[in-house]
Write a protein that binds this DNA or RNA. Sequence first.
RNA 1: GGCGCCAUAGCCAAGUGGUAAGGCCAAGGUCUGCAAAAUCUUUAUGCCCCGGUUCAAAUCCGGGUGGCGCCUCCA
Length: 458
Amino acid sequence: MRIYNTMTRKKEEFVPVEPGKAKIYACGPTVYNFFHIGNARPFIIFDTLRRYLEYSGLNVTFVQNFTDVDDKMIARAKEENTTLKELGERFIKEYYTDAKGLGIKPADFQPKATEHIKDIVALIKTLEEKGHAYEAGGDVYYDVSSFPGYGKLSGQSLEDLQAGARIDVTDVKRNPEDFALWKASKQDEVGWDSPWGKGRPGWHIECSAMSMKYLGDTIDIHGGGQDLIFPHHENEIAQSEGATQKPFAKYWMHNGYININNEKMSKSKGNFFTVRDIAQKYDLSVIRLFMLSAHYRNPVNFSEELIMQAASAMARIKNFRDNLKFIIDSGGSNEVDISKDICALEDGFKKAMDDDLNTAEAIGVIFEYIKDVNLAFENGADKKNAQDALIALDKILDVLGITFLQDVIPDEIKELAKKRADARANKDFAAADALRDEISALGYDIKDTPEGVKINKR
RNA sequence: GGCGCCAUAGCCAAGUGGUAAGGCCAAGGUCUGCAAAAUCUUUAUGCCCCGGUUCAAAUCCGGGUGGCGCCUCCA
C-alpha cells in the first residue's frame, strides 16, 4: 500500500516498523460538545484505514484519544455549572452514540488525558532534564530553539514562523513559538499536583504521552485533520523526539476539510452541522458514504443537496442487496457465472485502496460490480449465485464500514400485500390498486415477480 | 510576509504521460393489467486560461486567472 506522507509530501510505500503490525494514532475529539461533520471526517477516514489494514492481514493497534481537559472544557464546565469530569463523561457517551451511527468501530485504546496525568508529568520531567523545557511561574514551556528539527513537518523554519506569528510575546517565554507543556491552575480551577505546583497539561503533550504509552516510541501512522499539522503535530514531534531521540511517527496522514460554501467548517465560524442534527433526517451511513466518495486529502463541500445525492447512491446499493436477498429467499434456477465479476470487484477494490486509500475509486468499483452483476442476472440467477454475489459485496462494504440495517417488514404490511394478491387473483384491480396505494403511503414499494411478491422499504 | 492546497459535464467526483471511472439529475427503452419501484441504454473530441517539453499532456514544466487553508482554539 502507498500512503501520502505529509512529512515528505510524497506517496510512499507503507512499510511497518514491525513487520505484520501497524500502529496508528489518530487525534480524537475534545469532549465539550457534540461533534460536527468536519470532526467526523478524520474519525471515518482513520476508521476506514484501520479496517483496510486489518483486511490486508496486518495486526493493527489503533489508538484515538479523548481530550477531556483544556481551556474550552474548563470554560464550558463553568458555563454549565458542572464539573470537568461530568462534562467529559457526558460528551464521551454522546461521542460513542454518533460514532456508532457512522459505523466507527471503537479504537483498541481510547485513553483520556485526565487519566494519564502521571505519564504526562513524567514526560515533561524528561524534557526538562534534557534541556527542552523550562519552568516559568508555575507554567512549563517547551523551548523550540532547543529542537533543531522544529518545523520539519509543516515545512517552515523557525524564523518564518516567528515572522508571521500573531502571538503576543510574553515575558515568561523565551521564544514566541514556545508552547505550554504544563499550565498552573488559577485559584478555583481544576488541577493536579506536580513538581511545578498544581496545574494541568497543555494540549499537545497528552498526545505524545499517550501515543508513546500505548504504541511505543516510534509508531507507523499518525493522523488527523490538516489543521493539526501546525502547531499540534509539529509540537508532538518536538516533544516525543526531544524525549526519546527516536523518530516519532513514520507516516503522517492528514485529511482535508469539510467546507460550507467553500469555507472551512469550524466551531469558531459557527458554520457547522453536528452529526446529531443530521441524524434527525438521514441515516448516518449516508454521511459515511458521502465522506468516502471523495479522496480524503481533498476538501469537500457540504450541503443538503449533496447529502441527498449520497442518499440516492446509497439506495442503489441497498436495492441491489435487497434484490440478491430476494433471490436467495425465493430461490431462482438460472445458473450463471459471476466469478469474473467478483474478481474484478476484489482486485479493483484493493488497487484503489492501496493507492493512498482511494475510497472514491473503490466506490466506483462497487457500482461497476453492481451493474455487471445486474446484467449477468438479467435472465435470472440461482440461489448460490446470489449468495456469492452478496458475500463478496458485503465483505467490501464492511471494510468501508458501510452497513445496512436489516429491514423488517411489519406484519401489517404483509397483511395488506396478501389482501392485494387475493384481489389481483380475483381480477379486482380497483381494490388491488387501493391496497397498493395504502402500502405505498406507509413507505413501502411492492413488485410482482414470477417468484412472488417483493416488498421493499423505501 | 512564509508555507501549502484546489480548479474535470447541470450537480458531485476518480483519473499524475497512452486517448476522460463512478454516482446524482435528465431523456429514452424493458418489466407490469395500469402505475410506482426496479433495471438497462444514452449523456465531456474534452479537463480554468496562455505558452513550452513530448510521437503522445487533464496529467510534466513556465507564466497567468479564480477560490481556499495553515502560521491563534480547530478535524
